[in-house]
Design a protein around this nucleic acid. Sequence first.
DNA 1: ACGCTGGGTAAGGGTAATCAAATATC
DNA 2: TGATATTTGATTACCCTTACCCAGCG
Length: 695
Amino acid sequence: MSTVEEESDTVTVETVNSVTLTQDTEGNLILHCPQNEADEVDSEDSTEPPHKRLCLSSEDDQSIDDSTPCISVVAVPISENEQSFEVTMTATTEVADDEINEGTVTQIQILQNEQLDEISPLGSEEVSAVSQAWFTTKEDKDSLTNKGHKWKQGMWSKEEIDILMSNIERYLKARGIKDATEIIFEMSKDERKDFYRTIAWGLNRPLFAVYRRVLRMYDDRNHVGKYTPEEIEKLKELRIKHGNDWATIGAALGRSASSVKDRCRLMKDTCNTGKWTEEEEKRLAEVVHELTSTEPGDIVTQGVSWAAVAERVGTRSEKQCRSKWLNYLNWKQSGGTEWTKEDEINLILRIAELEVSDENEINWDLLAEGWSSVRSPQWLRSKWWTIKRQIANHKDVSFPASTDSPAAAVDSETITLNSGTLQTFEILPSFHLQPTGTPGTYLLQTSSNQGLPLTLTTSPTVTLTAAAAPASPEQIIVHALSPEHLLNASDNVTVQCHTPSVIIRTVATDDISSVTQAELTVDSHIQSTDLTDPPTTLEANTFPDEIHQSKLSDEEQSAYIDDESTKFSGRNSTELIDGVMVRTEEEISDTDLKREEDSHSNLTGAYVTEDLDSPTIEEQVDQSAIDDETVLIVPSPHGFIQTSDDIDNESALPLTTLADPILQHHEEGSHIIGSCLDSPDSEDSKDVEDLVSCH
DNA sequence: ACGCTGGGTAAGGGTAATCAAATATC
DNA sequence: TGATATTTGATTACCCTTACCCAGCG
């Protein structure tokens, strides 16, 4: 506990650890802490620089939570021998000032590095050490590496940029500076002392990486866009005049040095453009193999000096050579096969199986290994990106969902299918399943600021989320359709999911008391599906009773089960109907075809086909009832299909916690929400492939 | 003189977005 | 068969790391 006294330009805060906080005339808060006392809480090897973090907490000691202002500062010894260290708390001035001005009692804790883990998302000793190191030399890097430090490389994630921007913002605020460019481009090194170090906090990147990024971000000569023919001409002249003095050339062109440097790399007097001739390709292959000491037919994706290759090829730039080789020629020469839809699905599944928390963790080399239709790891990565880009909100969706939330949280991957074609794939944040009181019935809830986990774009789209929460006894797959998709069912939509059995039914508005709710109904006592046996059959008689049927379309419904396959089948083929149709599809493998033959044999085939005499969606859902909801009901693999009673809307409904965010995000109105429960104990269930068609 | 700090530069491997040509589909 | 949509190849603006350099300072 500490008391605060306020002075004209200096604030001193005494703490239990006798830490002294002062504010200088520039508004910086400076912490003074006797070394011996710091040692009490810092048992670190004294050879390690003291990286401490201050935590301000209110008197009621809410400990460390979101409501508690936490601050990050670097504690740097004033000198090796002095018994104190000094900290500049630029990032937290506002919080500190508030506390101080209000005269509240503030507690300052000095946490050891280990403790930082508890309060900082990225906080760890490694993070501190890395983000405060410039890495000037190879030795610096090796030294940190040898100490077990690791740091992030590659493209900056949105989260990292957010942290950086936030750090900069707080730095500016603390010093009353309006524009960061003042610091970056106008201040002297001395004036901006500690700027980069301060804003690097919380980032697991070396200081020079932060420095680079900040320079790029705030350099208005960067991001200027495409070079005009005039600029190119001028660039050529300047290049002759100034050689590799990129800074000078850039200044003359109003471009950043790196921009003009990069542009010059693309301009080679002898460069051809357009289609490669056979002769060029031949030469490229020869040069690559020669320079890498490999043989024709070998797969070469790394360790190639493209500048050297381009030099020898003569008619192409290094970029052109690299692109041609990695995206075509090497694959062609080594007997690669064509990329198919199955490959695409396979890619999605393989990535899902990796269960990596960050896309950057994906080892594309490993993933591409032995995959004949993959042209190169780099190519595969871009393929993945292409798939992702097809999702409208892919930029807003973080890669993985964390799985360590309570049982009700389900991590999901989403696959969007459009008109029978696999369109997109993404992994979404957690969903929350809430028991409704009706056994086997859950509510699906998305996190507060998360949009509907469904990609409902201009064309009929079904999004399917495949749950992968190991802790959840019943995994869930959800997909949805906008009402338009049902009403304008001129397109076929097929959803494939990894569950042993799927049954879809629709529920009219009247059946649902709240239009803002989405209901997932799961019945666990229906017929059990033996996933260990190849084609498993879902019995037709397990299908919903009159109530269900009244909500189902006239069309046949079927569920397809394939426990052998770990892949999604490629395409679909569904004819359209009015309403909702559940139907088995099969298209790729012989096995599938065989099952198709058995589709009407409920007990032996992989399919369950049912003819339901029910109104069509069009009949049930009129425009005035746009908020109607359609529920897809999917039985647990080990369970049974729910009876009509179970699915009774009245029993299932009063569920108000769900869906508002979903529906609000999608004004189209009603959606079909379906769930597939995956068996908790069966790995096989993951290998099950279901095809459900909705029309 | 030397090591450290805090930058700074050039080179080049790489990514992601866009454009255009080729091909498929309606 | 022609229009349109989709796929694929090529291009390019921009990003990031590596390796090296340098001035100022204690």
